[in-house]
């Protein structure tokens, strides 16, 4: 009996050691990613100041000019457009699903949300190319008297908005569900209607949660690559309207990988693009999640 028991305890010890090791590595991963990107982009940062790189709109890798502003501004355009479209739809739908919809409706919508969340971004890209781009060039642009091929900021924003809907919606439903039922019952018992309760009590209570859900959606949209790349047009300039093509940061990285080794500092510039992307995504993620945690603790 004894050797068997010792074996078990040894196994326990060994397991503990390597599991701790893995966990520590995973905890350190964000730091490793950030550090690696910073190290790789330091070559470019030594020669140019960060402000100059971010502010300049001149992108000529061959003559060593790396201005990131067209890419950052394109990314911002696409992301905010996506949020403006997806935000209200998500809030309204989340309210509907939590407070109004009968349970059978939820049973239909929940799988739909899950499937929407699971569809790969390249499929969204194909959908964008097949449906959204012709729709913009054929129907939407003539209404606004705009000349466009359809491959535009608007196309990117529309495709992105659909992609982040399931993401934001799931968080919002969770947020509305953490609001204590008593709050709603108390307000309803005063004789006001469902919507007035939502408008004047629940939405106020859920406000930080809503903001952080949208922040999470923002960071998701900012990092989306393939789908946006396929519909946004990829022209290096500072976009001035939604019907113009753009060139987001993620597309910049994805498009120029092949040639980056032949031009000096190019790889460093692309790593800086990745670093900017990483910093923005992590920042918004961090802030939003901290708000959510504080919000949830309040009601627990």
């Amino acid at each position: 009996m004894k050797p068997f028991r010792i074996g078990r305890l040894v196994k326990e010890r060994v397991n503990r050691v390597w599991m701790t090791l893995w966990t520590v590595i995973i905890i350190l991963t964000p730091v490793i990613i950030g550090g690696f990107l910073l190290w790789k982009s330091s070559m470019l940062l030594e020669e140019n100041s960060l402000m100059k790189l971010l502010g300049s709109s001149e992108w000529k890798p061959l003559s060593g000019k790396f201005g990131f502003s067209p890419f950052i501004i394109s990314s911002l355009w696409v992301t905010f457009l996506a949020l403006i479209i997806a935000g209200p739809i998500c809030i309204l739908s989340a309210l509907h699903l939590t407070y109004y919809a009968p349970s059978f409706f939820m049973k239909i919508v929940q799988p739909a949300i899950d499937i929407l969340a699971g569809i790969p971004s390249v499929i969204y890209g194909v959908w964008g190319v097949v449906v959204i781009v012709p729709f913009i060039s054929g129907h939407l642009a003539p209404v606004f008297n705009a000349e466009t091929s359809g491959y535009s900021i608007l196309a990117g924003g529309l495709v992105l908005s659909v992609m982040i809907i399931p993401f934001i919606l799931n968080i919002l439903i969770e947020i509305f569900n953490t609001i204590p039922v008593e709050l709603r019952e108390a307000t309803l018992s005063l004789g006001v209607s469902n919507w007035i309760t939502i408008r004047s009590v629940l939405l106020r209570k859920a406000f930080p949660g809503i903001i952080s859900a949208i922040g999470l959606g923002l960071s998701r949209a900012f990092g989306e690559t393939i789908a946006v790349l396929m519909v946004v047009g990829n022209v290096t300039h500072v976009p001035e309207g939604v019907f113009q093509p753009g060139y987001p940061l993620t597309a910049l990285i994805a498009n120029n990988y092949g040639e980056m080794l032949s031009i000096p500092l190019y790889d460093s510039a692309l790593m800086l693009a990745a670093l900017i992307l990483f910093a923005i995504v992590v920042l918004f993620n961090l802030a939003s999640r901290l708000i959510i945690i504080r919000y949830e603790n309040k009601y627990r």
Partner: peptide, 16 residues
Amino acid sequence: ILDLLWGVPSIIYGAI
């Protein structure tokens, strides 16, 4: 931290 990592875009993993 895992939630944070989940949010890191896949292109960054690819690039690194």
